[in-house]
Computed example of a mutant assay.
Amino acid sequence: MDWDQFDLNPKTVAALKKADIKSIKEILNLSGADLQRLMKLSSADIQCLLKTVSRTLRKNSTLTALQLYQDKDHLTSQHQRLSLGCSVLDNLLKGGIPLVGITELAGESSAGKTQISLQLCLCVQYPYKYGGLESGAVYICTEDAFPSKRLQQLIEQQHQLRADVPAEIIQKIKFGNSIFVEHAADLDTFHKCITQRLSLLLARGMVRLVVIDSIAALFRCEFGVSESIVKARYLQTFGAQLHSLSTRFRTPIMCINQVTDAVSELEAAQCSYRVMGSRVVPALGITWANQLLMRLMANRVSWPGQASGVASHCTGSLRTLRVVFAPHLPPSFCYYTVQLEGVKGVK
């Protein structure tokens, strides 16, 4: 560390060099009294030193409300999203998935959670102007095998789903898709995956999207009722690690989650989502919910006739995608269908 570049008293710079303090981390790891004794400076000089290094650390991270509103700082990700590849779904989410933070997609079986995630894995490869991030994706399977055949179908049908994208770009996606598949059936393997393999791929710039399918499967058989505290610690640890990776590399994290029935009156009162008269809540409880930036819920709705407010050609099985909570979105929902070419919203 070149202390001469800092706005410090020459006496303080000389004391830093004499004490062989080589980094800001060393300064912040020592108390004021320790620094005063080690550097043989007054309390006022030490306080000035601490204020200077603190200002240096937060120099590029503090933004005013006006800067956030106008989005003039290029480091701001307030208005940047990863598209879901469908204008209806993107309108629901005001552009798509936020680049920083954990987004959860919960829902019952056959609700279309995996279909949406696979479509995201293709969308992330598109250029920025088409809602992509020009990079690959990591798909972490914790339960079932990776649906490679379905992915190949989506790749072959992209020209029908993305009519707004030039054919030459779609061809690059078709033959140049870079989706890294990882398998993690237990907590130890998952921990190694996100701390080693995933960190390496992100650091090398090979991926800009992480999909975990599913997060609940890791905890289904690992913990008993009496081990809730240990389970909560694991959830907090994984949440912190995923948040750190997402913030550091500005990479969206999509976690697929399962649902459970709300059987008690307390759970029923807290249930914010109802499915055809039943009451379901996302798995893993409030500890996991506190790790999330945004929670989405998908549901399959089977109607024998035409649904109110839905186009007449959509009279069969529909899905709904619902915003349960998000800091930038109100609770809302839209309809969508899963077709051969992918997930398509219904106006």
Rank of each mutant, 00 (worst) to 15 (best):
D2W: 00
A15V: 10
K17R: 11
A19L: 01
D20E: 08
D20Y: 06
I24P: 09
K25P: 00
I27L: 12
L35W: 01
Q36D: 08
S42H: 13
S42T: 15
L50Y: 02
L50F: 04
K51D: 09
Q70H: 09
D71W: 01
D71I: 05
R81D: 12
L82M: 07
L84P: 02
S87E: 05
L99D: 06
I102C: 02
S110Q: 10
A111Y: 05
S117V: 00
L118A: 05
L122Y: 06
C123E: 09
C123V: 08
C123K: 08
Y128Q: 13
Y128N: 09
G131P: 03
L133T: 04
S135T: 09
Y139P: 00
C141S: 08
E143K: 07
D144Y: 03
A145H: 01
H159K: 12
A167P: 03
N177Y: 13
I179C: 10
E182N: 05
D188F: 11
D188E: 10
T189I: 09
R197H: 14
I215M: 08
K231F: 03
T237V: 07
L245M: 08
T247A: 15
T247G: 14
F249A: 03
T260H: 13
V263W: 11
E265Q: 12
Q270A: 13
Q270W: 05
Y273S: 15
S278D: 10
V280Q: 10
V280D: 07
L292T: 00
L296V: 10
A307S: 06
V324Y: 05
A326Y: 09
H328C: 12
L329W: 08
F333A: 15
Y335T: 14
T337L: 14
G345V: 03
V346T: 05
